[in-house]
Amino acid sequence: MAAFRDAVTTWAAGGPGEPGHRAHTLAARLPVRTAVLLEGPSDVAAVETLAACRGRDLAAEGVCVLPIGGAMSAGRFAALLGPPGLGLRLTGLCDANERRFYARALERSDATRPGFFVCTADLEDEFIRALGTERVIALIRAEGDGRPLDTFLNQPAQRDRTTAQQLRRFFGTKKGRKIHYGRVLVEALGPDRVPAPLAGLFAAL
Rank of each mutant, 00 (worst) to 15 (best):
T133W: 09
R135Y: 08
A130T: 07
L88F: 09
L88G: 04
D145M: 12
A203L: 10
D160T: 14
F202K: 02
A45I: 06
E39V: 05
Q166I: 13
H24Q: 15
H24S: 13
R177N: 04
C53E: 14
V47I: 06
L81I: 04
V65D: 12
G172Y: 08
E126C: 05
D57F: 06
A138K: 00
C64G: 08
W11E: 09
L66G: 03
L90P: 01
A60M: 07
L30H: 13
E187F: 03
L106P: 00
G132R: 02
A60N: 04
A45L: 06
G190R: 12
E107W: 13
G17M: 09
V8K: 00
V63W: 00
G87V: 04
R22P: 05
A23N: 04
I179V: 15
N97L: 12
F170T: 00
E143M: 09
G69N: 03
H21D: 10
L189W: 11
V47C: 01
R147E: 15
R104P: 01
V44F: 07
A35Y: 03
L201V: 02
R76K: 09
G14C: 05
A23W: 10
L81H: 02
R22Q: 14
E134C: 05
E39D: 13
V8G: 02
H180Y: 14
R104G: 08
F171W: 01
T133G: 05
R22Y: 08
A46T: 04
T133P: 01
L90R: 00
V47Q: 01
R113E: 14
T133Y: 09
